[in-house]
Design a protein around this nucleic acid. Structure first.
Lengths: 184, 184
DNA sequence: AAATCGGTGTTCGAATTTCGGACACCGACT
DNA sequence: AGTCGGTGTCCGAAATTCGAACACCGATTT
């Protein structure tokens, strides 16, 4: 079965995300929007964070699917950043619509999620320990978060390509650091 | 409940309509496309003609909803034609994808359906008998059909506005004829 | 301070929907 | 004559959706 109801719930959530800050979105809002019973929401999802989790996971997978060969970390970050900004990436929606309140944590968490997924591909032929992978995730997701943060904060100026380049330059050093660290 | 599955079946059908002639679309194709059980199709619809019937009815209602005040028949035809051509009107899809085979009847039937719906609004303040309404429907739907036919046949040239104007001029006379006829 | 209100998350059983697996039937093609 | 693919129908089982309750919490009102 194809779970059209579940899909509709997700779509309603994303739709509402464009209309109001995430902190104001209730389960009731969602089920009202897509006209299903409130229990149906709870049948499919634990709660709203779980819903978000699933949306993000899904979109991260979509992301990987769209770019199956990520030959370099730089390329990976570039693509991830582009995707996050240009497409329906929930990270962006959440941050953008949250009125700069306490949802930065969310954004952070989501960045981490995406980067983790990404590095699974980027690191697939590189021998590094799980701890080092964890470190890379933390460093890069912080960069990604900071990048999106800055960009939004500066009124979403159009010099994104330059910004991406700068971000990539910073991140390019990271694998070296990781490998260096692996040797000790 | 919001019948997401039913909706998905309709969407799959419309999607397939863009890919192959309607005569080649099987129930199996539809359920394969939207990944539901074949029985689920039969749970919602009698058969493919019934599915089409429902899609068309729905879109005709959408059409009316979008333009609640149709002050003149001319306006009605213009809007109907515009809608049929520019939007997702199934008439068009069917005709366009049917490889000019025996599905003109279908197109005809569908044109009739839309025009009927339209005239319910257009005629709501005019006193004409049911027979005369029937006559108007036949005349106008023939025009609409002929118009779409010609337009497609000429390679969908871009002089549509002129064509629409011409069509409207022809149809503008119809109410007069109907009213004239009503008097006898 | 107590009451009200709106939202959460859970439970239950009933109703609806979807499913897989059969079946006979038909028409085209071999 | 037999195979193949599609149709339309049946069944019972499984999954999903539903309404109606409930206790709980926090904010707002009285």
């Amino acid at each position: 079965m194809a779970d059209f109801t579940k899909k509709a719930i997700k779509e309603s959530f994303i739709k509402l995300l464009n209309e109001k800050p995430i902190s104001k979105i209730s389960v009731k809002d969602i089920v009202t929007d897509c006209k299903v019973n409130r229990n149906t929401f709870y049948y499919h999802f634990q709660d709203i964070p779980a819903l978000i989790e699933e949306i993000v996971t899904e979109q991260a997978e979509e992301l990987i699917e769209a770019y199956p060969e990520i030959e370099s970390l730089e390329k990976g970050i570039e693509v991830a950043t582009e995707f996050a900004i240009k497409n329906k990436m929930v990270v962006f929606h959440i941050y953008n619509s949250a009125n700069r309140d306490l949802y930065e944590q969310y954004t952070m968490r989501l960045c981490k999620h995406v980067v983790t997924k990404y590095l699974e591909v980027a690191f697939k032929d590189v021998e590094v320990s799980d701890e080092d992978k964890e470190l890379a995730v933390r460093l890069i997701s912080c960069s990604l978060f900071g990048f999106v943060y800055d960009w939004l904060d500066s009124g979403m100026s159009e010099d994104r390509p330059a910004d991406i380049k700068r971000l990539c330059e910073v991140c390019r050093g990271i694998p070296d650091i990781i490998i260096e660290r692996s040797r000790n």
